[in-house]
């Protein structure tokens, strides 16, 4: 039996534990709500976390593909990038998975001599963490970009009147698509 099979067999237990430790990064009253409310529109954060960790977990099992895992990382990170977290706190949830896997599977891994494979899985978590850094930064950069864009849009007409926003492509020869 490979570690992948173990991870697949115990998927629900591991995901539930991961979800629980992730919720512990929120105040108690909040984590209670995030856990209890099942409606995805009343509890969009809880729902995004559930959806996100499930996709990330699958990606760890299958081998990391940036394109596939990114939307799931984005679901969670885009939220945590605007909540009251430092960057390390915002992304720390990924590393919590290592502890959860060891908690649930360590005995069996030792028994079956799958330590090397565990190392591979943990390396995949590290790879995903690197992708997560990129997504986190994109979110933060987007926030600053939005601030600048808003200021520009707010005074769009005034700038236009002052001939400050004329598009170069407008009626000018030599500019092609």
């Amino acid at each position: 039996m490979e570690i992948k099979d173990l991870l697949q067999d115990r998927r629900e237990v591991i995901l539930k534990k991961w979800f629980d430790v992730l919720l512990q990064t929120y105040p108690e009253e909040t984590s209670r709500f995030l856990r209890k409310e099942k409606d995805p529109f009343s509890n969009p954060v809880g729902s995004a976390i559930t959806e996100g960790i499930s996709g990330i977990y699958q990606s760890i099992l299958d081998g990391v593909d940036i394109k596939e895992v990114s939307p799931f990382l984005d679901r969670i990170i885009r939220i945590r990038a605007v909540q009251d977290f430092t960057p390390s706190q915002a992304l720390g949830f990924l590393f919590l998975l290592k502890g959860v896997i060891r908690d649930v599977l360590l005995k069996e891994i030792s028994k079956r001599g799958l330590d090397e494979e565990l190392h591979t899985i943990e390396s995949r978590i590290d790879d995903i963490a690197l992708i997560a850094f990129d997504i986190y930064m994109q979110c933060r950069e987007k926030l600053y970009d939005l601030r600048a864009t808003e200021l520009r849009n707010m005074t769009y007409r005034l700038l236009e009147r002052a001939n400050l926003t004329k598009d170069l492509g407008n009626g000018q020869e030599g500019v092609s698509d």
């Binding site: 709500f33 009343s42 954060v45």
Partner: peptide, 17 residues
């Protein structure tokens, strides 16, 4: 009312309840 506020839902800050 506790979990009906968009600021609580989005921020997770209990003082926004």
């Amino acid at each position: 009312c506790a979990d009906k506020c968009h600021f609580f839902i989005g921020s997770g800050d209990p003082k926004n309840m």
